[in-house]
């Protein structure tokens, strides 16, 4: 109970405190409009330990505040425009330039690497084509050589075959020629045995020839 009562008292006191200067606030703007005469009145008030005016509207220090504001702000402005802004602006500018330059270089390097890549791919495909060509050439050459050798061997074999056939024909002819003589001998022996006469060789050969041609004619 006691606590709430105290709090109530404080609130009441609080409301009173800001209200007091607020009530007096109404005068200073009007004072400022009135000029010097009002200024003197306010100065009298101000000397009484702020009892009179709300400090922000106390014109006693308007000139002082204005002067020191002007001095400090001009110093600030000069430092800003002469030193600070060029410096920080320069830093940012440098960085922008540097980044642009680096990006530029990166782009250039990328292009270079792409070119190198393209060149490599081209070299690779060239080499592959070359390899195919060489392989094809080698194959063709080997094929041609094989064909040539085959032809040579065939030719050789043909020659041998022809020689062999020739010899066979020769032997055959010789054998055929011998057949007459053998027949005459046989006929001679047959005649001598049967008849007991000795036939002349010319008669024998004529007879053999006639028989053979007759035989041949019959065949």
């Amino acid at each position: 109970m006691e606590g709430t009562a105290t709090a109530g008292f404080i609130v009441a006191q609080l409301e009173a405190t800001p209200a007091a200067p607020a009530a007096e606030d109404a005068t200073p703007p009007a004072d400022a409009a009135h000029g010097e005469l009002a200024g003197v009145v306010i100065e009298e008030h101000a000397t009484e330990d702020h009892g009179g005016t709300f400090p922000p509207f106390d014109s006693t220090y308007f000139a002082s505040q204005f002067l020191w504001l002007a001095i400090s702000f001009v110093v600030l402005y000069l430092l800003m425009s002469r030193v600070i802004i060029p410096r920080i602006g320069g830093i940012l500018e440098d960085r922008r330039d540097r980044i642009a330059r680096d990006l530029d270089q990166a782009g250039r390097l990328k292009q270079q690497s792409e070119e190198a890549n393209a060149a490599y791919a081209k070299a690779l495909s060239d080499a592959r084509a070359n390899a195919f060509r060489i392989a094809a050439e080698a194959r063709d050459k080997a094929k041609a050589e094989a064909a040539a050798r085959q032809a040579e061997i065939e030719k050789n074999l043909d020659g041998k075959l022809a020689a062999a056939e020739e010899r066979i024909a020769e032997i055959k002819a010789k054998a055929l020629a011998d057949v007459g003589a053998i027949a005459a001998d046989a006929a001679d022996a047959v005649v001598e045995r049967l008849v007991g006469l000795k036939a002349s060789p010319s008669e024998l050969s004529d007879a053999v020839t006639a028989a053979r041609s007759g035989g041949a004619g019959n065949a």
Binding site: L67, L69, I84
Partner: peptide, 23 residues
């Protein structure tokens, strides 16, 4: 009255501090 007051002191301090920081 153009006295150097507590207000002026803090104006000067603000300028010194602000510029000092940036510099």
């Amino acid at each position: 009255n153009i006295s150097f007051t507590n207000s002026a002191l803090f104006m000067v301090l603000a300028v010194l501090f602000g510029c000092g920081f940036l510099l």
